[in-house]
Design a protein around this nucleic acid. Structure first.
Lengths: 146, 146
DNA sequence: AAAAAAGTCTACTTAATCTATATACATTGT
DNA sequence: ACAATGTATATAGATTAAGTAGACTTTTTT
């Protein structure tokens, strides 16, 4: 499962993506709209800022905005930034690899072999999907039965 | 990430699958071979037995064995039995659905929409893979560089 | 019948980590 | 100067996973 941190990050980025090019949006606005605890969201946006994804502006009229075009930010990138696990097994993770401590022989493990496949399928989808795509999907869903 | 319970279950089933049709295997043997804490493994195998996947025999010469052919047991089934999450979001899970408490409108959520796709891809792979396939994969890996 | 070899069952404990909150500080705009 | 806003770090609280303990039951062997 994704952590709430990852979920909140994605939702916040969707909000910011819709506003790309406009004036900064305040944390509290996003928190209220998306039902995210404000203090928690502060930390998350700060992380995204320190990772170079967001710019921030302090003081009155301040807030956050996207640095890059939402079409150039992939979902998988956000999972990794927020520490969300993509792989279902530690020994299969590309970015957070860890040996399974019970494992007798990783190289010949059939279980691992399947979960490599699962990881590849997941990474494919999530790296081909951008924040802009999330916004588009939302629009499509709204027009189809919103 | 899969829980250790799920991982241990899969590894134990591979051992039992190799032995399908033979005499029962003791918990302690599996625990030793696969580096799984014995007491923990006891609980797991008991669950699998209560789910009808394994039979058990008490007393001297006792142990566990598979009830069904390993080719008829899918990996996804084991994940579900051992409570492992297949979906990456609770609102996307087929068997353990839960509303995301922050979610404003699930039906039009773009984030959810992508993770439905990820879930489908994952379920496809894991439902097409059986315990027998895991064993076969292991053999293939051994012959290719074991 | 007794003893030994397994599995069964329930409860408890520990440890980790995720989630959230609190507090003090820094910067900007009016 | 003051209010609005983000920055940073620390800590508390909640939840769950992981593992452990111990007494019990059934079966086989002697």
């Amino acid at each position: 499962m994704l952590s709430k941190k990852t979920r909140y990050a994605l939702k916040a980025l969707v909000v910011l993506g819709k506003n790309f090019g406009g004036t900064p949006i305040q944390i509290s606005k996003i928190a209220t709209e998306e039902h995210i605890p404000k203090k928690f969201l502060e930390q998350i946006l700060l992380d995204l800022r320190n990772a170079g994804l967001l710019f921030s502006k302090k003081g009155s009229g301040g807030g956050y905005g996207l640095v890059k075009d939402p079409a150039d930010i992939s979902v998988v990138q956000i999972l990794r930034l927020t520490g969300g696990p993509v792989a279902l097994l530690p020994c299969v993770s590309l970015n957070f690899y860890q040996k399974c401590d019970e494992c007798v022989n990783e190289a010949t493990c059939g279980v691992r072999d399947v979960f490599v496949e699962v990881r590849d399928a997941t990474v494919k989808i999530l790296s081909e999907t951008s924040i802009a795509d999330l916004i588009q999907r939302e629009k499509n869903l709204i027009s189809s039965f919103g």
